[in-house]
Design a binder for these strands. Structure first.
Lengths: 335, 335
DNA sequence: CTGAAAGCGCTTACAG
DNA sequence: CTGAAAGCGCTTACAG
């Protein structure tokens, strides 16, 4: 691997001039520039980003802690975020390991320029420790943490209002007993996500129940089979994501229940699964693509020490045939 | 941010001793160790990974170039790979930007320990350039590159045999005209992926066609609508992934075609979409989870200069109701 | 316009 | 058992 020194030698200039030339700062004569460019091409030289990072005390790497990119919500978010980061000449360190103190420390120790995290599987201290090191942090807030370091910027999704809208819609369609299938675990105190909290609050006037710790399609399928056996009066299921909703739909089919007549199903994320399943599934559009872009933009602003306001995301309910009887069949395909 | 020097001062030892203590090499007395540990805790010290990387000329970062993690095949692969890498104390730099020469150079310039790439959206030179820098490279081979640097290790999926199996199966079910929907673009010479090549070869005795450059569900939906309008004799569709297959299924529904009687549909990746859709979709299990683990294991071995054999993956055809009339309805749910 | 020099925070052979 | 010193490949204020 050619280093800056090799380039300088070949070009017959000092190493400093090579730096000045590469970074387009400082003065370097046209003649010297040409010699340097020739040497750079010849040696296929790329500046060592690690050395540069150490010197300027910034690696231009953002860390993304996302518990599970197999969830389309996150894969979309990370996809867009990495694209935007790349355009701005940043690079992203991705990690799905979110509950290991040592690992988090390690990721951050790469003199990282900023950290994005979704807080449903982390704890406040982990986030606060990063923020205390003066590293910009943007949090996709799922759980309300009163003692969060105030330097942390948040992206908040308005689950309270959308859950009210969902419950209202289900009531209009005749729901009497709603089951919510949550991805968060009920066991960990302080880890009930705001989606679940919002559901419980929105359902105070109607019979309801919550199933915890389910996020895969297969788990949705099995857990609904079980839940329905225990309580056949369940007539509506709201699911933490579309994959789970698809599992519930399949379970309903297995139980010979008609959707939406016997059982109404609602998912989250408005993924292609919900648009294209049969019947299409009512879902909530949270625009994770946009959140990915927003997250990087916020990180970038924080990097420049600009003041960054928290961002509020207002989800949209997309009603489809899994929750509403629609007389004339039509294709519910958005966009 | 506390540095090693701060710890040394607080503990009353030399910076070198701190290093020896942290890295568990060299000798440091029990007494000195205790003082150092105290200082580390007090200052919440974490060694600077960038400085360490520069010194040992290795960042313990792997780069993953994956064109689109929104595709469940890749999100599963990357998910598992990052988990395994983390266990081994490596970190992963993820990038979906795969066609930008400068960006690739930049990622690699972090004194990276290894690179994983899927080659369907890159070119040989990009890969060879990395390999020439003596960086371990593992390639998920989609396109056959004769002039690939021989230091590159490959994971090859046996598409030839599985495509034969698929075409055979479709013929048995009465297929006369098969359409393959490919994600690769036909425009770029040398970029036809081996899946497409394998399909064309397997279909030499039957009428067939290929649609290019389609990888999202919506595109699958629209492209099939169009293709069927042009050629209503199409009775089978093989799709590059399950998402596309779901789109085709929806299009068939829209056209009032019965599946599998009028039109047989086959997807790829055996994702939960294919297992849980209605009807369930015949698909090909490639075990991307396992590939993620294998990729990191190979990278790790190459890092230790061990000889690494190429790996052959044999996909499995999972037949479901979208391609085969099954008399007694049952749930085709694997695992 | 150009280069010598200090320093980013580490590791590690070497001398004591 | 411990520490002074060289060096990883850069950037950048400073002197010429």
């Amino acid at each position: 691997m050619a280093s800056r020194k090799d380039v300088a030698e070949l070009a017959g200039v000092s190493p400093a001039s090579v730096s000045y030339y590469i970074n387009q700062n400082g003065y370097v004569s046209k003649e010297a520039g040409e010699k340097i460019q020739f040497a750079v091409d010849k040696l296929n030289y790329t500046p060592n980003a690690i050395a540069r990072s150490l010197r300027i005390k910034d690696s231009k790497q953002f860390v993304f802690f996302c518990n599970d990119i197999r969830n389309p919500f996150y894969s979309q978010l990370v996809h867009r975020a990495t694209k935007v980061a790349t355009e701005k000449d940043y690079t992203v360190l991705f990690s799905p390991v979110v509950d290991n103190e040592e690992h988090i420390k390690k990721m951050v120790s790469f003199q990282v320029s900023g950290v994005f995290a979704s807080n449903n599987h982390m704890n406040v201290n982990q986030i606060n420790n990063i923020a205390k090191r003066d590293i910009p942090v943007v949090l996709l807030r799922d759980i309300d943490w009163p003692d969060l370091d105030e330097s942390v910027s948040q992206i908040k999704v308005l689950f309270a209002s959308i859950m009210e809208e969902i419950v209202e819609h289900l009531k209009e369609e005749g729901a009497k007993n709603i089951c919510y299938i949550a991805s968060c675990s009920s066991l960990n105190i302080g880890k009930i996500d705001s989606k679940t909290t919002a559901f419980i609050k929105a359902s105070k006037d109607i019979k309801h129940s919550v199933l915890h710790n389910i996020s895969a399609t297969a788990d949705g399928y099995n857990s609904f089979l079980e839940a329905f056996k225990e309580d056949p009066s369940i007539d509506s299921v709201v699911c933490t994501n579309d994959g789970v909703a698809l599992g519930v739909l399949k379970a309903a089919e297995k139980l010979n229940l008609s959707v939406p007549e016997d059982i109404k199903i609602i998912g989250f994320d408005n993924s292609s699964i919900s648009q294209y399943s049969n019947p299409p599934i009512t879902s909530v559009d949270i625009n994770s693509d946009e959140i990915g872009k927003i997250a990087v933009d916020m990180l970038l602003s924080k990097t420049k020490k600009e003041t960054v306001e928290d961002v509020i995301i207002k989800p949209k309910l997309i009603i489809r045939r899994s929750s509403k009887k629609i007389k004339h069949f039509y294709m519910e395909i958005t966009k």
